[in-house]
Simulated assay, not measured.
Amino acid sequence: MSQNRSSNQLVVPQATAALDQMKFEVAQELGISIPQDGYYGNMATRDAGSLGGYITRKLVQIAEQSLAGQYK
């Protein structure tokens, strides 16, 4: 697992592995290579932004589907 220097904290710490897996899947879909050493400093800002934005869209879509299924 890469070192995380972010001050953000996960609400569910057990979700780390699932989020990392999603990050790699999304990067592969977008054709962005994830640094093997976990250091994102050499990654283009545009690529990092695209990756984060796409992950956010997917998470919102998953939440919407989950809520729609609960209320039907």
Rank of each mutant, 00 (worst) to 15 (best):
P35C: 03
E64P: 00
V60W: 02
T56R: 11
S50D: 12
E29K: 14
G41T: 07
A17T: 02
L30H: 00
S66R: 15
Q28F: 07
F24E: 02
Y39E: 11
S2Y: 09
A44P: 06
V12Q: 11
S2I: 05
R46G: 01
N8S: 13
R46V: 09
G41Q: 08
R5W: 04
A63M: 13
Q65M: 15
G52L: 08
V26L: 12
Q3T: 01
A15S: 15
Q21N: 09
N42R: 04
K72V: 09
Q61I: 05
A27Q: 00
Q70E: 11
Q70T: 12
A18C: 02
R57K: 14
V26N: 05
D20F: 15
V11K: 15
A27W: 08
Y39D: 14
D20V: 11
A68E: 10
A18V: 05
M22Q: 11
G38R: 08
Q28A: 13
K23E: 01
L67D: 00
L59Y: 02
P35A: 01
G31D: 14
M1A: 06
V60T: 05
V26K: 13
L51G: 01
Q9K: 15
M22D: 01
R46N: 02
M43G: 06
K23H: 05
S6H: 02
Q28M: 07
V26Q: 09
Y39S: 13
K58F: 03
A48K: 10
G53F: 06
D47C: 01
S66L: 12
M1R: 12
Q14R: 15
G41L: 04
I34H: 05
Q70Y: 07
L59N: 04
L19T: 09
A48W: 12
I34W: 03
N4V: 14
Q61G: 01
L19F: 13
E64R: 03
N8Q: 10
Q9A: 14
S66N: 12
L67K: 01
G53W: 07
A18K: 15
D47Y: 04
V11I: 11
G69F: 12
G53M: 11
L19Y: 14
Y71M: 06
R46F: 06
I32Y: 06
T45M: 08
Q61Y: 05
T56A: 10
Q36M: 06
T56L: 04
T16H: 14
E64D: 04
A15V: 09
L10I: 01
S50F: 10
I55S: 07
N42Y: 11
L19D: 03
F24N: 01
A68M: 07
R57W: 06
M43I: 07
I62T: 00
E29Q: 11
K23T: 03
L10M: 06
I62D: 05
L30V: 00
Y54T: 07
G49D: 09
L67S: 10
N8F: 15
E29W: 09
I34Y: 01
V26A: 15
A48Q: 10
D20S: 14
I32V: 08
M22S: 13
L59C: 08
D37G: 05
A68V: 04
Q61E: 09
A63F: 13
E29D: 14
Y39R: 14
G49C: 04
A15N: 13
N42G: 15
Q36L: 07
Q36V: 07
T16D: 02
A44C: 09
L67P: 06
D37I: 02
L51D: 05
E25K: 14
Q9N: 10
T16Y: 13
